[in-house]
């Protein structure tokens, strides 16, 4: 029955048509982390689930063609470094690690709350990529390899 990689055509088609919606929703949750429930971690998980949706439906080979895994690793590390970097800028500007050095803006607008949305975006990128990479790395194990004893 396993004529091709991935799942049946039904799952593939539904994934194809709906996966952008998952990404839009995840990014919305990240962008509005300082206004509504959610934030970097929740939105990042949703984005990771979007990636995993494609991964499960289409299989490993398709993901290799679609995404540059090395780039994702770099993105993960970069977002973490930027997070620490913003923290250090906080020390330099006001004297506290992660201190809020940008203007706070008006309440309930999108561009408000200083550095918090930036940090949310960084966390979202980190979590979204990292969670996907965790499952990806687990899928790279071959269960029959490397026996001992």
């Amino acid at each position: 029955m396993k004529s091709q990689e991935g799942m049946t055509i039904i799952v593939k088609t539904v994934t194809r048509i709906s996966v952008w919606l998952i990404f839009v929703y995840g990014i919305y949750i990240i962008f509005h982390g300082h206004l509504t429930p959610g934030g970097g971690f929740g939105g990042g998980v949703i984005i990771a689930l979007g990636f995993l949706n494609v991964f499960l439906a289409y299989g490993k080979e398709y993901i290799k063609k679609w995404l540059n895994i090395g780039l994702l690793h770099d993105l993960e590390a970069t977002s973490a470094i930027l997070f620490v970097g913003i923290g250090i800028i906080g020390i330099a500007m006001t004297g506290g690690f992660l201190a809020n050095f940008l203007s706070k803006g008006t309440l309930f607008r999108l561009f408000s709350a200083g550095t918090i949305p930036l940090l949310n975006i960084l966390i979202g990128a980190k979590v979204g990529v990292a969670l996907f990479l965790v499952v990806w790395s687990l899928s790279l194990f071959h269960i029959d390899e490397g026996g001992e004893q």
């Binding site: 687990l138 194990f141 029959d144 390899e145």
Partner: peptide, 10 residues
């Protein structure tokens, strides 16, 4: 991950 590696070994 550890469980998978243990399964590989044992």
């Amino acid at each position: 991950a550890l469980a998978v590696r243990l399964y590989q070994k044992y």
